[in-house]
């Protein structure tokens, strides 16, 4: 499972990264969280607002900060 956090480093992006980390830990997953901060790389995911949460290359949330619970759900959907 590959998780990417898209954002140029604002507070919301940091909160999202922390939430994702928490979700991964609680699920006991072996996935790395990559932070994508370069705007050109972020735009390759074609979103309109940051922060963005990407799981296995798919944008799961944009412009908002999902809670750790929601990320857990998204992660298990992606797994199952």
């Amino acid at each position: 499972m590959k998780i990417q956090i898209l954002g140029t480093g604002c507070t919301k992006c940091k909160t999202l990264a922390a939430n994702a980390e928490k979700a991964v830990q609680e699920l006991g997953l072996q996935s790395e969280i990559e932070k994508v901060t370069e705007i050109k790389d972020i735009m390759k995911f074609q979103l309109l607002a940051t922060p963005g949460l990407v799981i296995n290359g798919k944008v799961k949330a944009a412009g908002r900060v999902p809670s750790p619970e929601e990320i857990k759900q998204l992660l298990s959907e992606e797994e199952g």
Binding site: G7, T8, C10, I39, L48, A49, T50
Partner: peptide, 14 residues
């Protein structure tokens, strides 16, 4: 529209 200034660039490009 929900907007924060850190989203200005993706929004502009979009």
């Amino acid at each position: 529209t929900p907007f924060c200034s850190c989203s200005a660039v993706p929004l502009f490009i979009g």
